[in-house]
Design a protein around this nucleic acid. Structure first.
Lengths: 342, 342
DNA sequence: TTGAAAGCGCTAACAC
DNA sequence: GTGTTAGCGCTTTCAA
């Protein structure tokens, strides 16, 4: 009873006194093309529907060298930012007939590399990678080998791989401008992992806004080296000791903002009374924080969807020369964590 | 250049003047067993390592009828609760040599069913399902067919399928007791989707605590029918109109609590000044809300890990008669959203 | 100690 | 209109 003898083309073909080929043709919608008799076609189709039979994709995969499978590597699926991306990737992929094999690199480059190899070995047709953001040496090879691979978020332009990212530069620039508009001049910047594209772009936007308004750039105000809560907490603590004249903090991630809030609370600085805060990346709960946090919203869902579409293109036209990068616009969500100075 | 001729046992065997069989044996660690000459063994192993060759798992899957793949179906991967479970599932599965194929049922029973069929068709060796919580008719069949399938969170005991869940009953009972200990008597209960095991168990725990202390149960105080933020918001609004004497709200999910907070804010009720709130399921941001929310923490990670272990057992011993359910203990995380009444 | 052959379930080229 | 054959890459008898 444990060995349900799974149906197969062969079994079905015997049942109807035809060849497996015929069954295959019917089931792949080629009955018309091969002018298979309508009766046979109907009989087979009905049977398949009734038994809810689908040709074994493993066998198909072996034969066709296509698994209809996409690998997805995420640094931390428990992080809502990545979870949001993943949700769209899964859904869009499904509507195109692809399944997702999910790996979690745990923010670990070695595990990331291992996961990539695993997925290629598993014969995925393509791959979407949110790199942890460091030493992309091995990625270069995949670019050269023309593998269908698209990068998301912590992208590496110039690698020759297509990518999708939020327009971090403009997002950060607008957020900084918003602070400036509200009279802030001493604005600290809690940056993320140094050397990653998002962090660099955000700091770039911050600097650009400052420059545009003629506000002097103070390097002591740019601190931090990770996107995590810990880092936000610690660096904020240090910051308010080292440069007590700051009136605003631009935290370049969600978690960083949470950490900053915790530090500020401990140090009895009110937000936005004493210090204004802007976060990066919107999440539902930010509206429920005290105070509701102003933030730069990233188009998660669009990012995930775009990644799949780019990948599908890539898979269709393997050697397209134009590896286009895509920057999706952010939007400033204004809540109540920025105070107007006069 | 696009067609890298992937290595194969055959290719390698030709290279070394042996048969594919031999290569297969070496690469599957059976050299010893078949007393293959140490030189051949080493040569082959070295080559495989250098070329980073692994026998094609698709072919292997076809031959062995094992894909080393586990299906995971989640109602909403963007929900941090499920993302937490998924993260452990992925990681534990990986350490056991299994990959995860992820599906998102979007809280939709039809899509859930479709995903299950898809995954079985894709020949997954087993499946972990977080059901959306309704009409499990088709699940019964899988139980009968002895398929390796484990349920998580919104479980259906009595279906004959192994499952993992938090001990929702005790968790809710303790939380209610905590409220009672703090002098609350009129405690409203924002329940989740009616008919789901977690919701029923939580309401059960709530009732049990009331009963144990001799506090009369008022059915008007138990409201709601979904786990979402909307529902928490609306039902809280209605609640404070219908039963203005309540002093506490027990929200049986995270999102429900967020909705309640929003409603309370709009209605100018302070938390915990006017109304105390307890949530269900801990998430990092709850500590940063205003006020930091007291909540019943679920052992997400353990739940994910346990699900995989249960599944692996199930896959090893296909017809084990003892389909054990597993209830993992919750813990009450006390923060500042409960006021002591006197 | 090693290899030849069969077959997992499927599709595509080439018959007829 | 339909079937025969071969082969995707692997493992596993069975034979030597």
């Amino acid at each position: 009873m444990n060995s349900r003898p799974r149906n197969s083309l062969k079994l079905i073909s015997e049942k109807f006194g035809v060849s497996p080929t015929t069954v295959s043709r019917v089931l792949s919608g080629q009955a018309q093309k091969y002018r298979i008799s309508p009766e046979t076609e109907k009989a087979i189709k009905d049977f398949a529907a009734k038994e809810n039979f689908t040709p074994n994709p493993i066998a198909k995969g072996l034969r066709l060298k296509k698994t209809h499978t996409i690998g997805l590597i995420i640094p931390d699926i428990a992080n809502p930012f990545f979870a949001g991306i993943a949700s769209q990737v899964v859904n869009v992929a499904r509507t195109h007939g692809y399944s997702i094999v999910l790996c979690d690199s745990e923010e670990n480059p070695a595990l990331e590399k291992q996961s990539i190899e695993l997925l290629w070995a598993r014969q995925v047709d393509g791959m979407i990678l949110c790199p942890v953001g460091q030493t992309p040496d091995y990625l270069e090879r995949y670019a050269r080998e023309q593998r269908p691979l698209v990068l998301v978020d912590r992208v590496f332009p110039g690698l020759g791989l297509p990518y999708v990212s939020a327009d971090n530069f403009t997002g950060a620039k607008n957020a900084t401008a918003h602070l400036l508009d509200n009279g802030h001049r001493r604005i600290a910047c809690l940056q993320g992992m140094v050397g990653t594209a998002p962090s660099e772009a955000r700091v770039g936007g911050y600097t650009a806004a400052l420059k545009e308004r003629g506000v002097p750039f103070d390097p002591r105000l740019v601190v931090g080296d990770s996107f995590g809560e810990q880092s936000g907490y610690l660096d904020t603590k240090l910051l308010i000791r080292a440069t007590p004249d700051i009136t605003a903090i631009f935290a370049m991630s969600n978690l960083l903002a949470l950490g900053a809030l915790r530090a500020l609370r401990e140090e009895n600085r009110s937000v936005p009374g004493d210090i204004s805060v802007i976060a990066f990346d919107d999440q539902p709960y930010l509206a429920h924080l005290s105070p509701p946090l102003t933030t730069v919203a990233q188009p998660h869902l669009e990012m995930g969807a775009a990644a799949v579409k780019l990948l599908l293109d890539e898979m269709r036209a393997p050697s397209s020369a134009t590896k286009s990068g895509l920057y999706l616009p952010t939007s400033l969500v204004i809540r109540q964590s920025v105070r107007k100075l006069d």
